[in-house]
């Protein structure tokens, strides 16, 4: 998963990730690639298109 620099750390992606693979910090998000099942839901929900598979 590529996280673009213009991510705004809103956590919408973390809220919908069904396997709880996304951690939201104040100015950073971290995706646990081992937990991620590549469903693409987070990519779709992002209001600014900051994620790319």
């Amino acid at each position: 998963m590529i996280i673009k620099d213009y991510c705004l750390y809103c956590g919408a992606c973390a809220g919908v990730c069904q396997v709880d693979a996304i951690e939201v910090k104040e100015v950073k998000i971290v995706i646990d690639e081992e937990k991620c099942v590549n469903c693409g839901i987070c990519v779709k929900i992002c209001p600014v298109n900051a994620l790319e598979m």
Binding site: C10, G11, G15, V16, K44, P47
Partner: peptide, 26 residues
């Protein structure tokens, strides 16, 4: 912990938000 909620899930609750129910806002 708001819309990115994870704490409930850590405690084993079924408190997930489904994608079809999350408004993507700007």
């Amino acid at each position: 912990d708001g819309p990115s909620s994870r704490v409930g899930r850590w405690a084993g609750l079924d408190s997930n938000t489904k994608t079809e129910n999350m408004e993507s806002c700007i």
